[in-house]
């Protein structure tokens, strides 16, 4: 079972945050096939949000084929996003750490590192679209 949280300042709508958090958990292997998502009532009671928001998020996840609602029981995970990629996480993280160490040695502060990462991360994506 996962616990949701909301970041009110992120600018991302609450229902999208819920969807992202489920996807994220699926990717990281925190959620697997057959796992149950919290019931709407539980999420609502925990986050103090509108039940329709949760319903909408769950519907979207269902639409994507990631979860399925069983009448009267709850919502269960039916697919996984982790798959093969999970195995690659370890080495990649190690490489990233090395790169971060290099960047610091080159005199970049936290903010510069983040900016560099984000611009590099986004540039090829935009080129792909173009």
């Amino acid at each position: 079972m996962i616990e949701f949280y909301l970041d009110t300042r992120s600018g991302v709508s609450p229902y999208q945050q819920l969807v992202q958090q489920v996807r994220h958990a699926l990717r990281l292997g925190l959620l697997g096939e057959g796992d149950q998502l919290p019931t709407v009532k539980e999420v609502v009671a925990h986050l103090a949000i509108n039940p329709n928001t949760v319903l909408k998020a769950y519907r979207e996840l269902e639409h994507e084929g990631l979860v399925a609602a069983r009448q009267g029981v709850g919502t269960f995970v039916t697919a996984t996003l982790a798959g093969t990629s999970l195995a690659a996480h370890g080495p990649l993280r190690l490489e990233l750490r090395r790169w971060l160490a290099k960047a610091r040695r080159a005199g970049l502060d936290e903010e510069s590192i983040e900016a560099l990462f984000l611009t590099t991360f986004r540039t090829p994506a935009q080129e792909d679209i173009a």
């Binding site: 009532k41 009671a45 103090a48 509108n50 039940p51």
Partner: peptide
Amino acid sequence: RREFMQGLMEATAE
């Protein structure tokens, strides 16, 4: 405030 809204939202869900 939060507890109040939690209670209210829970009731609307139920």
